[in-house]
């Protein structure tokens, strides 16, 4: 499912979070959505899954305007922890199955096993790493065509990070687009094919990361420093 944003804008009372932004997400690709805090990454994701309405501009899904029906094809994992404390993991499964027609229980159980979680565990007793894994398992068990993961690796230890990255790789598929936001750029470096840099609500650069390495000899991290480093200096002065 290809998704096109045209002059997409979100204004809050005193702040323009997303400003005339243009970007296209194509199926079969894994995108890193990059930029310091407060550049509009989460706002963009929330508009793409229909949680926030846009102020102006367009979102096109396969060339038709985004409507509530398209929400069924978008899976969003916000940064925050999203499960109710009183639930067991098996309740989370029921909850997701109730809400999302594309939720695949078999896939969910496979993922729980891979990520070393069990249905009888209580959400209240899970560590932050386990909660992050549960969030990934629940989100990836939807057969959605656009996956939006907001900071999935935030505050996660090395081994948990590796198992989450593996899950992401094994669920990439030519029919879906994955967008992963992060300000820890290094972690995403090997698994994404396209880097999208945001600054002040706009896209400042979208690039294939292998050709960035090949043509400019730069890693995503180095490009990140190039793009954001200078302004920090100016602000400091």
């Amino acid at each position: 499912m290809s998704v096109i944003c045209k002059n997409l804008t979100k204004r809050y009372l005193f702040k323009t979070a997303v400003d005339q932004l243009n970007v296209t997400f194509e199926p079969g690709h894994i995108y890193a959505l990059l930029g310091p805090n407060g550049t509009g990454k989460s706002t963009l994701m929330k508009m793409l899954c229909g949680l926030t309405t846009r102020t102006s501009g367009e979102i096109l899904v396969e060339d038709h305007p985004f409507t509530y029906r398209d929400k069924a094809n978008v899976a969003f994992a916000p940064t925050e922890f999203i499960f109710f404390d009183y639930m067991k993991i098996s309740d989370v499964e029921k909850y997701y199955r109730d809400y999302f027609r594309d939720f695949d229980s078999n896939c969910f159980h496979r993922l729980l096993e891979e990520l070393e979680l069990s249905p009888s565990m209580k959400v209240k007793t899970l560590s932050s790493g386990m909660l992050a894994k549960l969030k990934i398992a629940a989100t990836m068990s939807r057969q959605a065509k656009l996956l939006l993961l907001d900071e999935p690796l935030n505050g996660i230890d090395l081994l948990t990070r590796e198992s989450i990255l593996k899950t992401l790789i094994s669920h990439a598929d030519p029919s879906r687009a994955m967008v992963i936001s992060s300000h820890m750029v290094e972690e995403l470096e090997p698994i994404v094919d396209t880097a999208v840099f945001m600054k002040e609500g706009r896209i400042v650069l979208q690039t294939d990361v292998e050709s960035l390495r090949e043509k400019e000899g730069l890693s995503i991290v180095e490009k990140y420093r190039q793009i954001y480093g200078n302004t920090d200096m100016k602000e400091a002065i």
Partner: peptide, 17 residues
């Protein structure tokens, strides 16, 4: 190529390339 992507933890498109 999917197994290759998982073993090296790289993007699946890179693996098929």
């Amino acid at each position: 190529s999917r197994e290759l992507a998982l073993t090296y933890q790289i993007n699946p498109n890179t693996a098929s390339r």
